[in-house]
Simulated assay, not measured.
Amino acid sequence: MLRDMSKNTKKSSSKAADGSSVNEDNERGRPDGEALSLPSSVAGSGALDRLVETARDYARAAASDNTLRAYAKDWANFSRWCRMKGSEPLPPSPEMIGLYLADLASGSDPSPALSVSTIDRRLSGLAWNYAQRGFTLDRKNRHIATVLAGIKRKHARPPVQKEAILAEDILSMVATLPYDLRGLRDRAILLLGYAGGLRRTEIVSLDVHKDDTPDSGGWIEIFDKGALLTLNAKTGWREVEIGRGSKDQTCPVRALEQWLHFAKIDFGPIFVGTSRDGRRTTQARLNDKHVARLVKRTVLDAGIRSDLPEKDRLALFSGHSLRAGLASSAEVDERYVQKQLGHASAQMTRRYQRRRDRFRVNLTKAAGL
């Protein structure tokens, strides 16, 4: 296998899966969806050209913006690596990809070695990019699969999970926020994200009503007993029920109502930017990175895990800590937590259930020892 890997380092003309030639220079630079075009045997027309653009829009919508950005970076990195090695990224060469994975795992100046999970993600990005260009990357090919298996065996480490924000933590975090518009907004984000077990992208993609904006990821209906969120989530459409809390100060639905009322938001994105003085709203939808920054900032302000240096505390918490916090804090039947998080299996839900007070249930004593 290693002898075979030394081949295919020179430039070559490419052919697609159907045997037709492909213009490598054009294909290489095309973003997702751009490769969609009319067959050469079909005459173009205004109506068909519009359909091509529509099809490209749907193709771009097949994955989230974050995923598309990551895949674009994966392709750019691999293309640059190929050029440095005197090769070309097209057509796909399992031998060269195997060498690329080995380089990522071993590291080379000035690039450090990447983690196994990042390497796996890079490979998924390459497979996706090749598919958009009319090629198929066989991940089971021995030049790829064997190298990847060896990397995992030698370098794999237990997954690093973000720390869960527990009930007492979220109360301390929202207590650090002021009561200006920005504070009302951020309080609603934290409480809604925690009670709903929401991803940060799900939080910021919410609109007031259905179909308010083209980039909407869902909407909210408020009732006497709580709020119903309809989300276009990672696994498809789902509904999330958020009941009212025991106190107005910590009720996520009440916090949302206050934000909408004082910000005078009755249409479009629910969570938008504010002026620097925190007194006026803008029309721009918040970026999901705001949620991660908000969690980190309020964790520091609330003094959570003050036993650790600030750098370590910042690394421990992220937007996903809200989602893990609900799974770890809710003392209810596991099925309800699984439904709230939108997981297909209870096993995935258990991966989110992590608490600092371990050994709450001592099975050793329960077994009579």
Rank of each mutant, 00 (worst) to 15 (best):
T298Y: 13
V337F: 09
D211R: 14
I242C: 09
V291P: 00
R293L: 13
S328P: 09
N287S: 08
K247E: 15
S275H: 04
V240I: 12
G342Q: 01
G319A: 10
L256R: 06
S328F: 10
R313E: 11
A233S: 14
P269H: 04
R297W: 09
G245N: 11
H261M: 15
V240D: 09
T235A: 13
K247H: 10
D211P: 01
T282Y: 02
P269K: 04
K234M: 00
F267I: 03
L314V: 01
L326G: 08
E241P: 07
T250L: 06
F267Y: 09
E310K: 14
F262K: 05
T250F: 09
G217F: 12
I265G: 03
K289V: 05
G243Q: 12
Q338W: 04
I220F: 13
A327R: 01
G319W: 00
L326N: 00
V299N: 04
R244K: 06
D211E: 12
P309T: 06
T274P: 02
T235G: 02
T298F: 15
K289W: 07
S306P: 14
L322Q: 13
A255N: 04
E239L: 14
K210V: 03
K339Y: 00
L316I: 03
K264F: 00
R335V: 06
P214V: 05
L229D: 05
A327F: 10
D277R: 00
Q258T: 08
A284R: 07
R254N: 10
D288S: 11
R293C: 06
L260K: 08
A302S: 11
F317S: 04
